[in-house]
Each structure stands twice: as structure tokens, then as C-alpha cells.
Computed example of a mutant assay.
Amino acid sequence: MDEVIRARRTDKVLAGEPLPVDDLRSVVEELVAVAGWAPFHKPVARVHTQAGEMTSIVPWRFHLLDAAGCRALREALVARGDRNKIPRLLGAASALVQATWLPNPTRGDAAGPFEATVENMEHIAAAGAAVQNLLLAATARGIRNYWSSGGALRDTEACGWMGIPEREILLGALFLFPADTGEAEVSAGSHRDRRGGPADWSRWVRLALPPAEDPFGG
């Protein structure tokens, strides 16, 4: 497990011309099943379990697109004028997993798509753990992967094409790539070697507790 965690890395595979379509459906289903063992604290609000075909109480959803779907989505984005890296990623991907998290319904006049509550924070953290599980499972199988913030895949139109409900919030677009990338460009993540060591992000705590009270008043 330690070796898999260290081996996981960002690999962006960018194809100017679409790569041949390969079938990774069964493998993706394996990855999703493993990812689903992520920890979560609270069940999601009922609005997320009473509509649609996905009725689990976990605070994440994975929307899966195979290689043929990735190529079709690429064409739709290009047709509307998208010239960013997303169409090039879709041209190379064996699969796309749109990972969303499920916020609690907002109350009153709260601004934004979700309220900054501890429970929502826990939902995001749980969904992030599920995403990491999926990426590690992909790495263990030798599958290149990239956790993207989504770019053009975040907008209402693109989510509508994929049938993603508006009440869900995209946490990441997870690209899975074939072993043979042909002449496509492969770009590594820019921050991998800049994270420092454990001493840069961890510390042993020294407690500074208040003096204990004498129960006898002495």
C-alpha cells in the first residue's frame, strides 16, 4: 500500500487527435467498488436519496463515461468553441469519472450553492477520500490518472449533457488513460516535488492545559 501511495502521480495525457477507443468499463466498475469503502460520517440529506437511480446515503456520486462517450463529449465541446485542454484530455481518455459531492439543502437566504457548515465539510472530506481511493486503485492497476477540477465540465450545459443533477457539486473530473498513449503529450503535475517532507506539514502536539483544580480547595 505504501508503494502504491508513493507511486500515484498526476499524468495529463493530451491528444490533438483522438486516440483509438478502448473498453475499460469493467475495470472502472472495479475502481468504483473499491472507492466506495471510503469513510463518511453523516448520511446525506433525503433530497439526494429520494430521486433518481442512485439512492445511497454516502455523500458522493460517480458519473461514469466510457472512451466512446469521452470522444462524443469532446466533439460537443469542440463544436461549441472550447479550445482549452479538456477536449484534448477527452480525446485521450479511456474513461471519465465525474465525482460530485452532495451538500445539505441551504436554509434561509444563504448565499452560494452550499452553506459553510461542519456537516458539509465532512461530506466534502468523505467524497475526497472516495476519490483518492479510486486514484490509488487505478495506480495499483497501472492506469495513468488525473484529478482535474473540471474546467468546462463544470458548467451547467456540460453537466446537463451527462445527466448530473444541479443539486450535486463537482469535486473533480477524474481522467483514466490507456497504457499506450501514442503520440499524445504526457504532462506531469507541477507540485509533486514541492510538497516538502513530513516535518513541513506535521508536528507533535505539546499540550498547554490549564492548571488542575484542587478538589479540596487547598
Rank of each mutant, 00 (worst) to 15 (best):
149 S>P: 07
158 A>C: 01
153 L>W: 05
207 L>E: 14
159 C>G: 05
192 R>H: 11
94 S>T: 07
45 A>P: 08
56 S>L: 04
151 G>L: 05
145 N>A: 09
206 R>F: 02
9 R>T: 15
43 P>I: 06
200 D>R: 01
169 I>G: 11
212 A>G: 12
187 S>F: 03
40 F>M: 06
80 R>G: 04
116 A>G: 13
134 L>H: 10
78 V>C: 00
74 R>A: 08
2 D>E: 08
199 A>S: 04
171 L>P: 00
120 N>I: 01
216 F>V: 14
214 D>P: 08
91 G>L: 05
204 W>D: 12
74 R>D: 06
88 R>V: 03
17 E>A: 06
155 D>C: 10
144 R>M: 14
99 A>N: 00
102 L>D: 00
68 A>Q: 09
189 G>V: 03
93 A>H: 05
106 T>F: 00
67 A>E: 02
36 G>A: 14
174 L>T: 14
56 S>W: 03
71 R>S: 08
167 R>A: 15
205 V>Q: 00
193 D>K: 12
130 A>H: 12
85 K>Y: 04
60 W>Q: 06
179 A>K: 15
11 D>S: 11
86 I>C: 01
108 G>Q: 01
203 R>D: 05
72 A>K: 08
41 H>S: 12
111 A>H: 14
4 V>T: 09
185 E>S: 13
189 G>E: 10
182 G>K: 09
96 L>P: 15
169 I>E: 08
194 R>K: 12
178 P>N: 01
71 R>T: 06
33 A>S: 14
98 Q>F: 04
69 G>T: 13
180 D>T: 14
88 R>Y: 04
66 D>A: 05
65 L>N: 02
55 T>M: 08
198 P>L: 11
111 A>D: 09
39 P>K: 01
57 I>F: 06
149 S>C: 04
28 V>K: 10
133 N>P: 15
29 E>V: 05
155 D>E: 09
182 G>S: 07
43 P>A: 06
164 I>P: 10
126 A>R: 10
30 E>K: 15
63 H>L: 10
168 E>V: 11
137 A>G: 11
103 P>Y: 07
109 D>V: 10
76 A>H: 15
29 E>Q: 12
153 L>N: 02
95 A>W: 15
192 R>Q: 02
126 A>G: 02
83 R>S: 00
217 G>Y: 14
150 G>E: 12
146 Y>P: 05
39 P>W: 05
84 N>A: 03
138 A>V: 15
